Amino acid sequence: MYVITAPTSTIGRLIVDDLLTRGEKPRLVTRDASRLAPGVRERAEIVEGSHGDEAVVDRACADAEAVFWLAPDDGDAPSTDAAYVDFTLPRRGRSPGTASGGSSPSRRWAVARGSRSTPVR
């Protein structure tokens, strides 16, 4: 079982489509299942809620083989750590042993706060 967070995002949607094409039935963590592409709900297991919530993470990661953890773009976060590192706290110390992380699809946050990061265009 593969767990995918933010499955309605630009990146998450691509990963979900790839897994479904390969015949997998991924477990998707989403705040709003109605935003999933047509046909996805019937072919995936849905865990509704935020992957910033420990209880949601526990339900989603039960018996999972791997997790793709995509932090949401949070331009209102007070720091880079709060936007990306702190958001992973509910995942720390939990199975599965394999996790792949992803950043947000936008670098507006870092650029707006004077980071040396270059925006992706």
Rank of each mutant, 00 (worst) to 15 (best):
R116N: 13
A62G: 05
A6S: 14
R108T: 13
R91Y: 14
V16L: 03
G114V: 03
A44P: 06
T118Y: 01
D76Y: 01
D74L: 04
D74W: 07
V47F: 01
G114Q: 01
V111S: 07
A44R: 06
P96R: 04
R31D: 00
G52C: 06
R116A: 15
A6M: 07
M1D: 14
D81K: 11
R31M: 07
A71N: 12
E42W: 03
E45R: 13
T98I: 05
A82V: 07
T30H: 00
G75W: 04
I4H: 03
C61T: 14
V57P: 07
G12C: 12
P78L: 07
D74G: 05
G102A: 15
S100T: 13
W109S: 06
V29I: 15
I15D: 05
S104H: 08
A99H: 12
G49T: 03
V120M: 12
I46T: 01
S79H: 00
E45Y: 07
A33H: 01
L14R: 14
Y84R: 10
T118F: 12
S95Y: 05
R91K: 09
G52N: 10
D76A: 10
D17H: 11
I46N: 02
D73K: 02
R41E: 02
G93F: 10
M1N: 13
E45D: 13
I11M: 13
A6N: 13
L89A: 14
G93E: 02
S50I: 00
S79R: 00
P38N: 02
P119V: 11
R108S: 12
A44C: 01
V57A: 09
S104G: 15
A64C: 11
I15V: 15
S100W: 14
D76H: 11
P105E: 13
A55Y: 01
V29T: 04
I11N: 08
E54H: 06
L70W: 05
R116F: 15
C61W: 06
D86S: 01
T21I: 08
E65P: 03
E48P: 02
D53H: 07
G97K: 08
G93C: 01
V3I: 09
A37R: 08
A33C: 03
G23V: 03
G75R: 08
G97S: 05
V47W: 01
R92N: 03
V57R: 10
